[in-house]
Design a binder for these strands. Structure first.
Lengths: 342, 342
DNA sequence: CTGAAAGCGCTTACAG
DNA sequence: CTGAAAGCGCTTACAG
C-alpha cells in the first residue's frame, strides 16, 4: 500500500553509529564536517557511510535546524526559454555544490508569490532565489525578518540592503544603437515593450543615450508602443509605416516584436536589411532561424542564475559579500538583419 | 546573520493550539482533515489558522510520517523545451492539488540518476515522477521496495507492475505516413533517429506499418541513419541524395533532422514542397518558423506531465488505479511542407 | 575527543 | 469528541 512509507528499510544515523561503534553525535559531526572527531575515526565513519550508501534525512536536518541542502527558486514559469535558462543556471550551480532545488512557479500571480511565505516557514530550504513581479517592499521586509538568505534576479531596486543580480539592459541597448549608428543609420525607430516593464524603459534609455552621445536628434515620431509580443511588434510597425516618417533602421526592445516587425515590413514590400535594418533584444532561438537571421542583444540569462546561486551559497555559508548589486553585461550578436549605409 | 534561522518568529502548531484553547493533536486533526473534531471546533480552528496565516512545517510533517505535499520530478534537463513542457504539466497539475515541486535534474548522467535514491530517503517527497535514461530494473526494484509511489514518463516497459505514461510514437508515425500516402506519395524516404532510441524505432515501425497497410513496397535504400540532430539530418539527406534513388517525400523521425534535411535539399537546388515533401516529428518551435513551415507530429508533452501527476496524486492518496500503462495520442500538424501529387 | 539528553514541529495511537 | 505522550531522524549544547 502506497499510503504508508515503510521507513524501516532506510538507514538512519543510528544505524551508522552502531555500525561504527560510536554515538549518533559523532556521526553527525562527521556528516557536518565539524571538529571534535579524530581524523582516524572520521575516515572510518566516512567509509561506513559510503559503503552503506547512507544519506541523511533532509527533513530531519531541516527540523533540527541545520542546513537542508535545498535552495528554493521562485520563478514565474518554466516553459519560457528565458526562465528555463535561469533555472538551468541555478540548478547546475547548486548541484555542483551539492545543493538540490525546490521549484516554485508563480505564473505571475501575486497570490502565488505570496505563498512563498509558507515555503520559508517550512524550514525546507536554506536560501531563496527570487524572480517575481509583485514583490513589494513589505515582502522584502518579511524576508529580511525571516533571517533566511535571499537573492533577487532581475529585480532592480535602490534598496542597497538586498542582494540582486540584474542584466545591464541600458548598456546593452546603448551598444546595439551605437552599432546601428556605426553602420550609418541615423533615422532609427524604436519599438517599446510593455509599458510597465522596467527593462523596456532601461533599453529605451540606452537607445536615447546612444543617440545623444552621437549628436543625433531624437525623433518622437519614430517611437511606437508595443507589448513584447510578436503581434504587438507587427502592429507597431504597421502604425510606424503609416506615419510615412522616414527611417532606415528599427531597434525593437525584444526579439518577438522584431520578428513581428519583419513580417510587417515584408508585407509592405520592404526588404530586410536592404530597405530597413533591424536589431532585436534577447537572442531567443527563433531569432537565428528567421529570414534574415536577426542581429540582437544576448542577455546573460544562464549567468544570472549562476551568479545568483553563487551569491546565495556564500550567504548560506555565512560569508560576507562586500557588494550587493550585480550588473551583468549583455552581448551584441551580429547577424544579417543590418546593412551598412556607407 | 544569515547563518542562524531565527525560528522564534514562526508560528507553530502549538501557538495555534493555545490560541484555540485546544491541544496540538486537535489542530493536527483539523490540518489533515481527520475525523474526531466537532464541526464547530473545526471551523473555529480553521479560522484561526487562516487569520494567522499559519502554514505547517513540511519538514516536521515529513519526519512525522505524514504527507510532505511535495512531489519529486526527476528529469534530464530544464533548458530543453520538451522537458520544460513536461515540468510545466507536472507543476501546474500538482499546484492545483496543493502540491509543490522538487526538481532533480540528471543531465542524462547515470550517477546523478542514482542520487535520486538519496532524495527518497529524505522523506521529503510523497511521490516521484521519473523521466530518465539509465533506469535499470534494479532501480525499479529499489523504488518498489521503498514503498513510495512513482510514475515513469516516456519509459516503455513490459513490466506491467509499474505506472507509465508514454507517447504513442508508432501510431503518430503511422498517421503521418498515411498522410503522405494520401497525398499520392509512394517513394518515401525515412530518416532514423539515434540508434538506441526506442522512440525512433517506434516511429520507424509506424512508418513501415503504414506502407504495408497501403500495399507499398518498402525500399531499404530510402532509409538513412541519423542521430536526432540538425546536422545529422543534413548529412543523412546528403547521403540519400547521392544514392540517386528516386523519392518524392521524406519522413524524418524528428524536426531537428527535418530542418537539416530542408537545408540539404535547398543546397542541391531542390524545393520543398514542390520537389520533395517533408514531414517531421515533435512540433518544436522552429518547425513553425522555418521556410516552409513544417508539417509535423505534435507530441502531447504537457499532457504527459499532467497525466503522470494525476496518476501519482491518486496513488499518494491511496487510490487504486486499474490501468497502469497509459498511451497518449499524438496529433498531426499540417503545414506547408507537403504537396499533393494528385 | 566522545556520549547521553533535549529539542526541532509535527502525527498518531492510546486513554479518557 | 479531546488531550498527554511517544516518536520521526537529526543537531547541538553540555558533561565527562
Amino acid at each position: 500500500m502506497p499510503q504508508k512509507k515503510p521507513k524501516n528499510t532506510k538507514l538512519t544515523i543510528e544505524d551508522i553509529a552502531k555500525l561504527a561503534g560510536v554515538s549518533k553525535a559523532t556521526v553527525s559531526y562527521v556528516l557536518n564536517d565539524k571538529p571534535g572527531v579524530s581524523e582516524e575515526l572520521r575516515l572510518k565513519i566516512k567509509k561506513i557511510i559510503e559503503d552503506c550508501n547512507y544519506v541523511p534525512n533532509s527533513a530531519a536536518r531541516g527540523l533540527a535546524g541545520e542546513k537542508t541542502h535545498f535552495i528554493g527558486l521562485v520563478i514565474p514559469d518554466v516553459s519560457d526559454m528565458f526562465y528555463a535558462n535561469i533555472i538551468r543556471g541555478v540548478e547546475k550551480t547548486s548541484n555542483k555544490h551539492n545543493y538540490l532545488l525546490n521549484l516554485y512557479t508563480t505564473h505571475g500571480e501575486e497570490e502565488k508569490e505570496r505563498r512563498v511565505i509558507g515555503l520559508i516557514n517550512s524550514s525546507m530550504v536554506d536560501g531563496l532565489i527570487i524572480m517575481a513581479y509583485y514583490i513589494k517592499d513589505n515582502f522584502v521586509d518579511f524576508l529580511k525578518n525571516e533571517g533566511i538568505p535571499f537573492v533577487f534576479i532581475d529585480y532592480p531596486t535602490k534598496d542597497e540592503d538586498i542582494y540582486t543580480v540584474v542584466v545591464d539592459n541600458e548598456t546593452g541597448a546603448f551598444e546595439a544603437t551605437e552599432y546601428l549608428i556605426s553602420l550609418g543609420h541615423e533615422k532609427i525607430a524604436f519599438l517599446e515593450g510593455h509599458e510597465a516593464a522596467w527593462d523596456s524603459k532601461a533599453r529605451f534609455m540606452g537607445f536615447l543615450k546612444a543617440l545623444t552621445a552621437n549628436s543625433i536628434e531624437f525623433n518622437p515620431l519614430l517611437i511606437e508602443k508595443g507589448d513584447f509580443t510578436r503581434e504587438g511588434g507587427y502592429k507597431a510597425t504597421k502604425r510606424l509605416l503609416e506615419k510615412r516618417e522616414e527611417f532606415t533602421a528599427i531597434f525593437s526592445s525584444n526579439d518577438q516584436m522584431a520578428i513581428g516587425a519583419v513580417r510587417a515590413l515584408k508585407e509592405k514590400g520592404l526588404k530586410v536589411p536592404e530597405d530597413v535594418s533591424i536589431v532585436g533584444f534577447d537572442n531567443i532561438e527563433a531569432s537565428s532561424i528567421i529570414d534574415p537571421p536577426l542581429t540582437t542583444v544576448m542577455q546573460p540569462i544562464y549567468e544570472m542564475g549562476k551568479k545568483a546561486t553563487e551569491i546565495l551559497l556564500r550567504l548560506i555559508n555565512g560569508e560576507n559579500i562586500e557588494r550587493k548589486n550585480f550588473l551583468l553585461k549583455t552581448k551584441l550578436i551580429k547577424r544579417s538583419s543590418c546593412k551598412s549605409l556607407k
